[in-house]
Amino acid sequence: MTKGRALKFGDSISTDHIIPGRFAHLRSNLPELAKHTLEDARPGFASQVNPGDFIVAGTNFGLGSSREHAPLVIKMCGIQAVLAKSVARIFFRNAINLGLPILICDTDKINDGDELILDLASSSVKNKANGVTLTFGKLPGVMLKILEEGGLLNYIKNHGDFEL
């Protein structure tokens, strides 16, 4: 079980919010790039994150580009998982491939700053602020394995191929 604060966002946070194209020139300098994470949606975001915090969002989080830099900088900031009502397809896959858990649940009952306790084993997250426990669905088998093994590259290292 792991604790962290909720950093709350609304609906439709796009990859252009997470890490805009205008910073693409920093992409070979990832620590520098990560400093700009989500700054167009929440100025100063990267410096507000304490390791283990959660991003808590509404619908269609991560829509837009296929840039894997989006989940990568979120992870580099110290975020342990993203909770959202729904997540765009490519972002979802990219996050799991990097070992960043995506938890789909009704996030209305979480406010900015609430302390959350994540229990991946029981697929639930408890909000200490109001005592509410939210449960989230299981990932499809192959994605669960990729996440459990620390991301796609590790998975392929371990298995040499896709094993369904």
Partner: peptide, 9 residues
């Protein structure tokens, strides 16, 4: 479309 890890693989 996919991300960089998927495409690398």
């Amino acid at each position: 479309g996919m991300g960089s890890s998927d495409i690398a693989v």
